Amino acid sequence: MSDASDALAPKRSRRASGRVTLADVARAADVSPITVSRALRGERSVDKELVERVRKAVDELHYVPDPAARALASQRSTQVLVLVPLLSNNLFVDVLESIHRTLFPQGFLPLIGVTHYDTAEEELLLRTYLPHRPAGLLVTGFDRSEAARQLIARSGVPCVHMMETSSALGVGSVGFSQAKAGAAMTQHLLDRGYRRIAFAAAQLDPRVMQRAEGYRRALKEAGLYDPRLELLSPEPSSIALGGRLFEDVLTHNPDVDAVFFCNDDLAQGGLLAANRLGISVPERVAMAGFNDLAGSDQMVPPLTTVRTPRQQVGEAAAQMLLGLMRGKLLKPQAVELDYELVVRQST
């Protein structure tokens, strides 16, 4: 580069790598490095005029923060590892959206891992990411390998469990009672006069089986439980599977007058199959789902379901984790949220 072009180039102090540093930004903005750090994290305590100066310096110097250097300098990470089973429907997407909205403004970055309901895959994710010392950990439920439990316990990383609650001492959890919700839907069907109520389920993860337990409890209390009316498939939950399960129910138990599906996508498939086969809902057979997923209110007829507090779970779990990461006591250690029975025309 010529002397003339050197004179026109912005003056910047660089590391040997040539990377613009946080200290460079601080000098350009005429503020301290800690002010730059706080401004970039979005802390509200930083004066707006200082934030504007920092942003201008960042733009002029083309500064890109180095998360690894920041964690090394502060001896703490800004990443939060979030482990969820799937991203194929709105259930966990809604949870993650709430987590992001809660953590990001506080300077923490959610790092998503998908377990696919596989305890071995979850264990691998923990072994991969925990050595990087995330600031916190959000995990789904309590069904995991003993090795995974030990990895979490020995890591010293603050951890909160989502979607289920526990009374175990020192265990942070946010969720709702899947069993009570399953019993409530079954009782609704009983109250409507249905007596041969089938339960159709897929995936068969622990939360699905808790809903099944609620279904059984309600029917046993009414003296109407028949184990032959349970169709439990280990296949992933889907609309197509719901249609097949509905047809199987009526083929093997033609006297069934209601079907409680463990998830809305299955129930949506059941409704589509009933329409295709000319089976009147709810006159011939009623149908109910779980989770109030997108589209359930647009089915023909609209689907009765359980609206689960997934957005509230994500927000409350993230807030609990923020407290733990900041050294606060775990109080309360278990937060149980409410679900809502949404009654529509399918029952």
Rank of each mutant, 00 (worst) to 15 (best):
N275P: 10
R53K: 08
R133I: 05
L245C: 05
A73W: 08
L241A: 04
S177Y: 03
K180N: 11
R19F: 06
L138P: 00
F108D: 07
A318S: 13
E230V: 12
S296K: 06
I239S: 02
L250W: 03
R228L: 13
L137G: 03
L126D: 00
R344L: 04
P234N: 01
P234A: 05
L322H: 01
A200L: 08
N263W: 07
I239Q: 06
R310L: 14
A153L: 10
S77W: 07
P10H: 04
N275L: 15
S173M: 06
R211K: 12
Q187D: 11
I152D: 00
L130I: 04
M325N: 02
T186A: 11
D94E: 14
V36M: 01
A135V: 05
P158N: 02
E146M: 04
A23C: 09
E235Q: 12
P85L: 09
Q312A: 15
D94I: 11
V114N: 07
D118F: 11
G289M: 03
S98Y: 11
S238T: 06
L337W: 08
K56S: 12
P309G: 11
H252P: 02
L272R: 15
A334Q: 12
G175E: 04
D30C: 07
Q298R: 15
D3S: 08
R217F: 11
V313D: 02
S237F: 00
F142G: 00
L96Y: 12
R310D: 14
T21S: 13
K331G: 07
E336C: 09
F290Y: 08
R76Y: 11
E213W: 10
R149H: 09
E221T: 13
L231K: 05
R144H: 01
E315C: 13
L293G: 12
G223C: 08
L232V: 01
S238A: 02
S45Y: 06
K331M: 09
V157N: 00
A181Q: 06
D94M: 12
G141W: 02
A9V: 11
L232Y: 00
F142E: 00
Q311I: 09
Q312K: 15
P67W: 00
R344I: 04
G295K: 09
D6Q: 11
L61A: 01
